[in-house]
Design a protein around this nucleic acid. Structure first.
Lengths: 257, 257
DNA sequence: CGTACTATTGAGTCCGTTCAAACGGGGTGG
DNA sequence: CCACCCCGTTTGAACGGACTCAATAGTACG
């Protein structure tokens, strides 16, 4: 299970087997397919084996705002298990392999393995932490930093799971969808991307991000990966790649800001 | 317990007593006090009996972005129980009564009352849903709508708990802090507030919001309260106050957008 | 061979920011 | 009691980032 690598303290091999045993066989779904419509009653939750999906809200004029991007190894609607319905839509961004788990199976899991069950809670809390970082990004960062920050996040999350190397990764988003992530216009995304390209930080072509200068990208994006709650070993590797020195714990110990 | 009113399906009276029994006696804390520093190890979680607290991230220049406001009746760092540390800071916005619950007590609760325990998960998922709505707000809404949207959210959340009437509520935020919520400048907040005042929608003076025209405020804020997962009866009352007709379920049944 | 959708570029406009200054209330100390 | 200061609000003026509108081109698809 992909989660092993990113969060080795999260699922033991036995637990991963238990989770996999609950799930149905994966199904392949084409890109740009709406998987979940908001407020529809749901009795299954979904796990993404391969691909990428986006979660979005829509305003009254139909303009979308992505509120999350899920990558391979994510349970992307555990909330549906607890809440029965969810508040947002979910769409595949490319061809995806998805396996479903009936909520009744999760009920059984709760009674039989409460500690494993709690780890699902942990996953949803990491998700919430990512949400908070997205608020920070669109609220506080200027255009260029906003884009650089998001592109760095996607690199870090993919690399932490072993889904990409250090110099490129797949990002199946059009410039328009990138605008719906970053809270701006596709025209503006285009100009900012060309700035990042001229700076030699990264290029985005045909759904592939080629990373030229990762530390510079992280720096212009004011990016810090702490909120992802990565396992210490992986966090250290990521910090090295991003050119960061201090861990959050050191910063706390060091004194007040 | 305040949660009873807003989410009557959430805690039964017996469960509320159980939760209260776990908690220490409330302590009063002065306003503008930092309660939690990010990444500090925590062994207790906090419940807000009275007052208001803010959760925020800080960028490298020290500029704050609020990522959440908690009101009386909120557990505002359940995440600390599962994650041990949290990714953001927490500050009191006014004098607050706060009671703590040791994580060991929650462990006991998990083993003795798994279903009640799951309701804590539910709380944290509602929290995440509010996060998503904040992303939507700062990402997609223009300045005036952004402010109106936030002011409507705070009214709805407070009113749903019986913490205010229909024409005014306490909001202990300076214009500068409001700017840190809405992702803009205090100067701009000032101008937008005066617009809302001239439109007769609402005024903010000395930490009190006086609501002049709630439906208009909700309309300019493009506000829909569905994401709060309010109990049906209260949701209906709120929709009436905001001048909204359709519930989300009706909209789903009605057809695709 | 049309019909989309996507990327790119230009020009003009407006929203929101930055920098500044003035005002008013509430505290404190002389 | 007054002087003073601090903090929050208010307002002005100028700048710049981001948007809107628009046109072009390239590409995938039926």
């Amino acid at each position: 299970m992909l989660l092993d690598r990113a969060y080795p303290d999260l699922f033991s091999p036995a637990e991963a087997r238990l989770m996999a045993a609950c799930a149905d066989a994966p199904v392949t779904i084409r890109g740009r397919t709406r998987l979940i419509q908001s407020w529809t009653p749901l009795n299954r939750s979904l796990y993404l084996n391969r691909g990428m999906v986006g979660r979005y809200c829509t305003d009254r004029q139909g303009r979308r705002q992505f509120v999350g991007i899920q990558i391979a190894g994510d349970y992307f609607d555990i909330a549906a298990y607890v809440m029965s319905r969810i508040d947002h839509d979910v769409v595949t961004l490319c061809d995806c392999d998805i396996s479903a788990t009936c909520h009744s199976q999760l009920d059984a899991l709760r009674d039989a393995h409460p500690r494993l069950f709690q780890k699902l809670w942990r996953l949803s809390l990491i998700d919430a932490s990512i949400h908070r970082y997205w608020i920070f990004r669109v609220g506080r960062l200027a255009g260029k930093a906003r884009l650089a920050n998001f592109l760095t996040e996607m690199f870090v999350r993919l690399h932490a799971r072993g889904l990409c190397g250090t110099d490129r990764y797949d990002l199946p988003l059009s410039q328009n969808e990138l605008a719906e992530v970053a809270g701006m216009t596709s025209v503006h995304v285009n100009r900012l991307l060309s700035e990042l390209r001229l700076d030699g930080m990264c290029t985005l072509t045909d759904g592939v991000v080629t990373v030229g200068n990762l530390p510079a990208l992280a720096r212009t994006g004011h990016y810090l990966p702490d909120y992802l709650y990565l396992a210490p070993a992986i966090a250290a590797e990521i910090r090295q790649l991003l050119g960061l020195r201090t861990s959050p714990v050191e910063r706390v110990a060091g004194g007040d800001a």
